[in-house]
Design a protein around this nucleic acid. Sequence first.
DNA 1: AATGCTTACGGGTCACGTAATGATT
DNA 2: AATCATTACGTGACCCGTAAGCATT
Lengths: 90, 90
Amino acid sequence: MDFRQLRQFVVLADELNYRKAAERLNMTQPPLSIAIKRLEADLGVQLFERDRLGVRLTMAGGVFLGEARRLLDGAQAALQVTRDAAQGRI
Amino acid sequence: MDFRQLRQFVVLADELNYRKAAERLNMTQPPLSIAIKRLEADLGVQLFERDRLGVRLTMAGGVFLGEARRLLDGAQAALQVTRDAAQGRI
DNA sequence: AATGCTTACGGGTCACGTAATGATT
DNA sequence: AATCATTACGTGACCCGTAAGCATT
């Protein structure tokens, strides 16, 4: 699990469409599909359901979505405060 | 910035010694040295001071240490709650 | 046919270990 | 000499894009 995967997951959870998600991520569908599969394997948890009707979040996927957003926000905040500290703006 | 770098940074900040930190991380000094340099470059912030006396955290490094610990704890918590959710333990 | 997701494959990047170098005690 | 950190270099893993395959509409 890394931040890149978290970003990919959040965008896919928002779009529920691999093509559109990949477009927003400036990449193509195949590597996105593989990255999500790999994330699910790493977690040992299925995050999406794929069937005829399309892509949907599982319950665990919904839980992970909140966590992923929190982590991404936290990462951005970490950069911010660290850079501010480096410039003496404390 | 990724979680692997955060783990390496936190251990090095704890040990203030590349050899010992690398040992705890089950790796060798050279890749650790490079990974930390890369992290500093990514952030645009110097996290450690190296001089005759050894390795010390900069002020910004101290700030980042708190953030890194929070992010790593958050990642672990995210795994936990997601796996629990997947097993219906909500 | 067209759309959407997945598998197959080749290329570039990156992380690691080993080896060699530099610096300090 | 010994210890510690940093380059230098070769190998293996991984991410990505292109191409091909498969299913559904």
